[in-house]
Simulated scan of single mutants.
Amino acid sequence: MRPELRRHPCLDAGSHNKYGRIHLPVSPICNIQCKFCRRCFNKWEERPGVTRKILSPKEALTIVDRALELCPQITVVGIAGPGDSLASNHAIDTFRVVHEKYPELIKCLSTNGLMLPDRAKDLVEVGVSTLTVTVNAVDADILSNICTHIVWDGKVNYGKEAALRLLASQTRGIWEAHKRGIFVKINTVLIPGINDEHVGDVARTVAGLGASKINIIPLIPQFEMADIEAPDCAMLNKAREDAEQYLEVFRHCTHCRADACGIPGSNEDLADRLYEQRIETFSHG
């Protein structure tokens, strides 16, 4: 791992309780629909896809200023939703202004990978050095049971057609990011009865494309997968062992919100204090 990534609490276990990160909720839309994903606005749910509000790039820079005052240990500015970070230009525009003012901060982006092949070059130009791509399957038949549809070239694609398109983009995008020097981590949501025996295949495939680490996230039963039980510890441990044959496994994920702020693993999320001062809400039309 590159030395600077030792200050990234979502990549290095030794940094998890030492350094802070802030997630900027600037991405309003998503271009795929996963059966476990429910995006919403509130203050209380501790999971991805949830935020208090959507920020414009200008507002996001103000939030970073405040966050560094509250938590000088912040070393990472991340964008992870609540929609997909590459389904609009908002994340790229945000990183551009943040990187101009704070070039020393690590810039980290999470994406489903559908638009990654076309945006990998842009990510480098705005200072992004670490990337998380959610890859829940590398077999189209399995993926079609996880992803309901994608929006591609202005059209909605369903089923296996959607899965094949998404996989093609993820495959090319991970390689494009890796060859440009971006550190790539993979997130895989572990879904009992669907991909629990498939995680080793995911890890082997993405390792061959240049990914360096994988984070296996237990399913949060909700939306179309509300009736599927979350994986137990035995299933999670087996999936991690399967993946560890090919990639280093990150084991300290805390299901962070899209507007999380502070040091992961600590008892205090600073987002309430961060957003208590009124800021102008971003309108999407």
Score class of each variant (00 low, 15 high):
residue 4 E to S: 06
residue 9 P to T: 08
residue 9 P to G: 11
residue 9 P to H: 08
residue 18 K to R: 15
residue 18 K to W: 03
residue 19 Y to W: 13
residue 21 R to V: 11
residue 21 R to N: 02
residue 24 L to K: 04
residue 26 V to I: 08
residue 28 P to L: 04
residue 29 I to P: 00
residue 33 Q to V: 12
residue 33 Q to C: 05
residue 33 Q to W: 05
residue 35 K to V: 07
residue 37 C to Y: 09
residue 38 R to Q: 14
residue 38 R to W: 13
residue 45 E to S: 14
residue 46 E to C: 07
residue 49 G to E: 09
residue 49 G to F: 07
residue 49 G to M: 10
residue 49 G to Y: 07
residue 52 R to T: 06
residue 52 R to C: 01
residue 52 R to D: 10
residue 53 K to Y: 10
residue 55 L to E: 14
residue 56 S to I: 02
residue 59 E to F: 01
residue 62 T to H: 13
residue 62 T to S: 14
residue 63 I to C: 05
residue 67 A to F: 09
residue 70 L to G: 07
residue 75 T to W: 01
residue 78 G to W: 00
residue 79 I to R: 00
residue 80 A to Y: 02
residue 84 D to W: 03
residue 87 A to H: 05
residue 91 A to D: 00
residue 93 D to S: 12
residue 94 T to D: 13
residue 102 Y to G: 13
residue 102 Y to Q: 13
residue 109 L to D: 00
residue 112 N to D: 14
residue 112 N to R: 03
residue 115 M to N: 15
residue 119 R to V: 02
residue 120 A to E: 12
residue 123 L to H: 06
residue 124 V to P: 04
residue 127 G to F: 02
residue 127 G to S: 08
residue 129 S to R: 14
residue 131 L to W: 00
residue 132 T to V: 04
residue 133 V to E: 02
residue 135 V to P: 10
residue 135 V to G: 12
residue 141 D to P: 01
residue 148 T to Y: 12
residue 152 W to I: 05
residue 154 G to A: 11
residue 154 G to P: 11
residue 158 Y to Q: 07
residue 158 Y to M: 09
residue 163 A to G: 14
residue 165 R to L: 15
residue 166 L to T: 05
residue 168 A to P: 03
residue 169 S to G: 04
residue 171 T to L: 00
residue 172 R to W: 04
residue 176 E to M: 02
residue 176 E to T: 01
residue 179 K to P: 01
residue 181 G to S: 05
residue 181 G to Q: 06
residue 183 F to A: 10
residue 184 V to I: 03
residue 190 L to Q: 08
residue 192 P to V: 11
residue 196 D to K: 04
residue 199 V to A: 08
residue 200 G to T: 08
residue 209 L to V: 10
residue 209 L to A: 10
residue 210 G to S: 07
residue 212 S to D: 07
residue 215 N to F: 07
residue 218 P to F: 04
residue 219 L to H: 06
residue 224 E to F: 13
residue 225 M to A: 03
residue 230 A to C: 08
residue 236 L to V: 15
residue 239 A to H: 12
residue 239 A to M: 10
residue 244 E to H: 13
residue 244 E to T: 01
residue 249 V to Y: 04
residue 251 R to M: 09
residue 252 H to P: 02
residue 256 C to S: 11
residue 259 D to H: 02
residue 259 D to A: 01
residue 261 C to I: 00
residue 267 N to C: 04
residue 275 Y to Q: 01
residue 279 I to E: 12
